[in-house]
């Protein structure tokens, strides 16, 4: 069987549609790098996604094409996904006590009443 395409490039490449595909094996698509993008100097870098790449150099190239082909970008970080250590969502209760720490909350320091009372006492 022959492919009869309206695209001359497809016809020129003489693909055999019956040919058996040798399946892609592990790492055929490389490992992944997580991408962090800074859109403006002075701002934090932000995680925007990942790219598959064989090295940091090529990860930069793909990250630029994938995440910085529109809009502003001044800097990119890439880091191997295997080098990222993350907390588990099921342990998220470790963060639960944060709102209870009223001693860290500036609005819980109310001195005006005491000052007023003190002033009243001074007058008398």
């Amino acid at each position: 069987m022959k492919i009869n395409s309206i695209d001359p490039r497809v016809n020129r490449s003489k693909i055999d549609p019956e040919k058996k595909f040798e399946e892609a094996k592990e790492l055929d698509q490389w490992q992944t790098f997580e991408v962090f993008q800074q859109i403006k100097r002075g701002m934090h870098h932000q995680h925007v996604g990942c790219v598959h790449a064989p090295s940091p150099e090529i990860a930069f190239l793909f990250a630029k094409e994938q995440y910085a082909r529109r809009g502003q970008c001044v800097n990119i970080w890439v880091v191997k996904s295997s080098d990222v250590f993350a907390t588990e969502y099921e342990d998220a209760d470790i963060f639960d006590s944060a709102p209870e720490k009223f001693h860290r909350d500036p609005s819980t320091y109310k001195v005006m009443d005491r000052i007023q009372a003190f002033k009243e006492r001074q007058k008398s």
Partner: peptide, 29 residues
């Protein structure tokens, strides 16, 4: 067929670039 050929023709390039210490883990995304 076009998709298959692209995979086949690119494979040697991907293999040539693959570094020995590569390790696949699930991405974070």
């Amino acid at each position: 067929a076009v998709r298959r050929q692209a995979e086949e023709k690119g494979r040697w390039v991907r293999q040539a670039l693959l570094s020995k210490d590569s390790r696949y883990v699930t991405p974070l995304v």
